[in-house]
Design a protein around this nucleic acid. Structure first.
Length: 572
RNA sequence: GCCCCUGUAGCUCAGUAGGAUAGAGCGCCGGUUUCCUAAACCGGUUGUCGCGUGUUCGAAUCACGCCAGGGGCGCCA
């Protein structure tokens, strides 16, 4: 349940049509979360947007318009400064909201705004020429989390990975490995000496080249190209697996080429008169679609540029029934956006339904010096290494607390050094503490419904507290939440109600980073509450009420962490 | 030269499509464990929101111009 929307909708119905008409173009009534308790739980600034502030204000606070759930939810409406209208929620309603969370459980925060719309997210899609690096990790964390969030919001979002397994970079890979094999053989396969060999500037270097070369020698492999590709792709997959990132589908560029779709693309574009020959090459009139200049589709040697199969791939996505396509790209590809969109438009497909999110680089700092990200020079930090150094959860959290367009400085030394201080543990610790409270409560004779035990190992789906055979200390479903009245309890509840709104913000802007910040402040309020008030005490009624409260907290923590792909441990 | 992104506390970053007194974590200083996990809590510390104009009831947020950093401007992918 989204309280903000409920109030907004109620207001819009309550506001007399006359007032709305006179206000003229004030648009929807928009509620904001109040930062200051003196200004209530929510406020609206609609008074500022209209010329007749007083009338609008009057019509909103007019008691005559209270109806629907209004009486149950709203305690009072105040105007402290002209233009701002503050809404105060009823304490009883806030307390009762805990029951809503307990009812909705793992669906609390979800919605159906997506209406089942099919979205394809394509991300990482690293060239299969080496291990995944830290920037790939950032894209993986973001894409994965976005997929989860969109599905939570009622979309049908599917993650996909495009493997560029043809083209010159693969030729270069093959050459690099072949050369390494030669050198290793020449040097009697001594690795240390192999390193001294100088490779051409544009060749791939790094330990993995040497390792693959060595394997090929050892296993006496004939098809160097295929073996190397398979090996690298397999390693990339296993890294992503360790990182908790799942892809529904892996699409190979070679398959797209073989499908004949690229030829169709050329045919269509030609037939629509959007291409022309110049200098022996075929050019697409991308400038007609807003690009700065035209681009080559077919090189003078008859080969396609990589634009052609890429256009074909995107048309293929549409053909598979996806209405919206989301791609996560690195900043080095931003100049490519007009090109691919032009290609899609030229093929008579809806380019406006392709949304490209540019995920900025991760700059690695080591000993205060910036490390390059160059794959060719082998001077990058592997995602795999990073996961080993600081752990999957810290790593994901680190990436997911930043907006995608912010340049990210990653100080590896600092990350290692401060990882025990990482806020992700703070959040997980809150979750573990609640689990611990439950365990203690059971030891004290409180019981749980539908379960013989707490399911400590897989406790994502918490049992509901309910009546036990011993009626005196059981927690009934209708447990009396009116016993919650301390400042700390109310602050917790007021934080809990905003979770659905946070999710909505994430969906609207395609930005997961609001979730970690929210969870952090929720955890802070919980820890604060925990230090000041005991949950399990001799006061049975109060204990029952507080168990429900912390269970609601646990549900929200769990739902939030799940959307981030971060574990919620029962014990730490 | 042109295009994209960024510039907020000592450091790393939030700031919900302009809202009421700028936030968090880390760091630093000082406190808190007979009781559900001290990976915690409490108190203290830090800002010309890069700079300048403008827009309006109101600007960290919008517009324009500078400055600084990152990335991109191939018949590479």
């Amino acid at each position: 349940m989204n309280i903000k929307h409920t109030i907004e909708q109620t207001l819009e119905k309550a506001l007399p049509a006359v007032a709305l008409a006179k206000a003229g173009g004030i648009g929807n009534i928009e509620l904001f979360e109040s930062k200051n308790p003196a200004f209530g739980d929510y406020f609206t600034n609609i008074g500022f947007k209209s010329e007749n502030t007083d009338q609008i204000t009057e019509s909103i606070i007019n008691p005559a318009h209270k109806f629907m759930c209004w009486d149950k939810m709203i305690d009072r409406v105040e105007v402290k400064a002209k233009g701002f209208i503050n809404f105060f929620l009823k304490e009883d309603f806030l307390k009762d909201f805990i029951n809503i969370i307990l009812d909705e459980r793992e669906t609390f925060g979800s919605s159906d705004v997506g209406k089942g719309k099919k979205i394809l997210l394509e991300f990482v899609s690293a060239n299969p020429t080496g291990p995944l690096n830290v920037a790939n990790g950032r894209a993986a964390a973001l894409g994965d989390s976005l997929t989860r969030i969109l599905n939570f919001a009622g979309f049908k979002a599917v993650p996909e990975y495009y493997i560029d397994d043809s083209g010159t970079q693969i030729d270069t890979l093959e050459k690099s490995i072949s050369l390494m094999i030669k050198k290793l053989k020449d040097k009697g396969s001594l690795r240390a000496e192999g390193e001294a060999i100088s490779f051409p500037e544009n060749y791939y270097k790094g330990d993995y080249i040497q390792n693959i070369a060595q394997e090929i020698i050892d296993k006496n492999i004939k098809d160097i190209r295929t073996y190397s590709l398979k090996k690298i792709i397999k390693d990339q997959k296993s890294t992503l697996d360790r990182f908790g990132t799942k892809f529904d589908k892996w699409v190979y560029e070679s398959n797209i080429r073989e499908s004949g779709k690229p030829d169709e693309v050329i045919k269509t574009i030609k037939s629509r008169n959007l291409a022309y020959e110049k200098d022996g090459a075929l050019w697409l009139k991308t400038s007609q679609f807003g690009d700065e200049k035209d681009r080559v589709l077919v090189k003078s040697n008859g080969e396609y540029t990589y634009l052609v199969p890429d256009i074909a791939y995107h048309l293929n996505k549409f053909d598979r029934g996806y209405q919206t396509l989301i791609n996560l790209w690195g900043p080095d590809h931003h100049g490519y956006i007009p090109r691919i969109k032009a290609g899609i438009s030229a093929s008579n497909y809806p380019a406006e339904n392709l949304k490209i999110i540019i995920v900025q680089w991760v700059t690695l700092l080591k000993k205060n010096r910036k490390l390059g990200m160059s794959k060719r020079q082998g001077k990058f930090v592997n995602l795999d290494e990073l996961i080993s150094e600081i752990g999957k959860d810290v790593c994901r959290y680190f990436f997911l607390t930043r907006k995608q367009e912010s340049h990210l400085d990653f100080d590896l030394d600092l990350a290692k050094q401060t990882s025990p201080q990482n806020p992700v543990y703070y959040i997980q610790y809150a979750y573990a503490r609640i689990s611990s409270i439950f365990k203690f409560a059971v030891e004290q004779g409180f019981s749980l419904a539908n379960n013989t035990n707490l399911k400590l190992s897989c406790g994502r789906h918490l049992p509901m507290w309910e009546a036990s055979p011993d009626a005196d200390i059981s927690i009934s479903r209708s447990g009396d939440l009116s016993h919650l009245r301390t400042k700390e309890e109310m602050l917790l509840i007021r934080k809990l109600i905003h979770f659905p709104e946070i999710i909505e913000t994430c969906v609207l802007h395609l930005e997961p980073h609001h979730i970690p910040f929210y969870l952090q402040s929720l955890a802070a309020l919980f820890h604060n509450f925990y230090e000041k008030q005991r949950v399990v005490t001799d006061d049975i009624d109060l204990t029952k009420a507080r168990l429900k409260l912390v269970e609601a907290v646990k549900i929200v923590l769990s739902n939030g962490l799940t959307l981030l792909g971060i574990e919620a441990p029962e014990k730490m």
